[in-house]
């Protein structure tokens, strides 16, 4: 399973990075490949390439605001959740993304 994610919160200080860390933590537990782009106060970091996006089985937007450069994800399966939900329960988000990828 290949997952790519984007995290972004309003202030771009804390939740962006907590959500990114939690997505990675629980994806790794399932042995899923994951790369997470953060769109925070420091701008875009760990930017996803179009090739990485194209190769992904599913996309997770963990955002409380709009995703920058969203057109990169056209035609992908996208799970959109708030950052708090990912901070609270990263496992559930990863499981939901996996279900979406499998078309369940």
């Amino acid at each position: 399973m290949k997952i790519v994610g984007v995290t972004a919160c309003i202030a771009g200080i804390a939740h962006t990075y907590m959500a990114a860390a939690n997505l990675k933590k629980f994806a790794k537990k399932e042995n899923y490949d994951i790369k997470v782009e953060t769109q925070g106060a420091m701008g875009i970091e760990n930017e996803l390439s179009q090739a990485e996006i194209d190769a992904a089985d599913v996309v997770i937007f963990a955002v409380d605001t709009t995703v920058q450069n969203e057109e990169r994800f056209t035609s992908k399966k996208i799970l959109e959740v708030g950052t708090s939900k990912v901070v609270k329960d990263g496992r559930e988000t990863i499981e939901a993304a996996a279900r979406l990828a499998k078309g369940e």
């Binding site: 962006t16 860390a21 933590k25 953060t38 925070g40 420091m42 901070v87």
Partner: peptide, 18 residues
């Protein structure tokens, strides 16, 4: 903006998930 202090806060925030 984009400085080392924000970076440290971001790192510490991520660690809170550990």
């Amino acid at each position: 903006k984009g400085d080392e202090h924000l970076k440290m806060l971001a790192t510490l925030s991520g660690e809170l998930m550990d």
